[in-house]
Amino acid sequence: MADTQRVTVAIGPPTWTVVDQRYTIVEPVEVFLEFLRQSDYSHNTVKSYARALALWWSFLEGRDGSWQQVHLRDFGSFMQAVRAGTVGVGVTALPEVTAVSDATVAVRMRAVMSFYRFHAANGVEVAAALYEKVRAPGSAYLPFLEHIARREGRTVSRLRLRTTRSETPILLPSQITGLMEHEAVWDPSTATWLGDLRYRLFWAFLAETGARLGETLSVRHCDWVTSRGGTPFVRLTPTDNHPHHHRLKTGARKVFISTRLDRLYGEFVWALCEAGAESRIPDWDNGYVFVNTLREPLYAPLRSESVYAHLRSLKRRGLDLPQRMTPHWFRHTHATALLLADVPLHVVSRRLGHRDVQTTINTYGHVTEDAELASLANWQDFTRGWVSSAELAP
Rank of each mutant, 00 (worst) to 15 (best):
L345V: 12
G353P: 15
V82G: 03
V19I: 15
A129S: 15
L321N: 03
G76M: 10
A81E: 05
R247M: 11
W379C: 05
L294E: 15
P232W: 00
T259N: 11
Y141K: 09
R160N: 06
R108I: 00
S58T: 14
W57C: 07
V126F: 13
S258R: 11
L94A: 06
R37L: 09
R331G: 02
P394L: 14
G210V: 07
A337P: 01
L206P: 13
T15G: 12
Q68A: 11
R162K: 09
V29A: 04
D20L: 13
T237L: 13
G62K: 09
R351A: 11
T98A: 10
E369C: 09
R110F: 03
F115C: 08
R73V: 15
W186T: 01
L60A: 07
V18I: 11
T231H: 04
S189I: 07
R355E: 13
W203A: 04
A204M: 15
G88P: 04
A121W: 03
P327Q: 04
F78E: 02
R154P: 01
S174K: 04
P327F: 06
W186V: 06
R303P: 02
F290M: 13
M325A: 09
Y23S: 14
Y299E: 07
R220S: 12
F144A: 10
Y364A: 11
E34A: 03
K47T: 02
R73H: 10
A127D: 11
S189C: 01
L179D: 05
R165A: 12
Y265W: 14
E296Q: 14
V9P: 08
R6K: 15
R220G: 06
L339K: 05
P297D: 11
D74C: 06
L171E: 06
S218G: 13
A149W: 00
A99L: 07
I257N: 00
A149Y: 02
F78Q: 01
R151K: 10
W270D: 12
F144M: 08
S101V: 02
H245R: 01
L33K: 00
D262A: 14
Q323I: 01
A149E: 10
V225I: 15
L236S: 07
R316F: 01
T15S: 15
V89R: 10
S58C: 14
V31F: 01
L264W: 06
E183N: 03
G178H: 07
T231G: 00
A377V: 11
F75A: 08
A252D: 02
H43F: 05
V89F: 04
D3R: 15
L142P: 02
Q68W: 09
L145I: 01
V289A: 12
V289S: 02
R253S: 05
R350F: 00
N292L: 03
K254F: 00
Q80F: 05
T177I: 08
T163M: 12
L60Y: 08
N44M: 00
T104S: 13
L194Y: 02
T237D: 01
Y116E: 04
K133R: 12
A377F: 07
E183A: 11
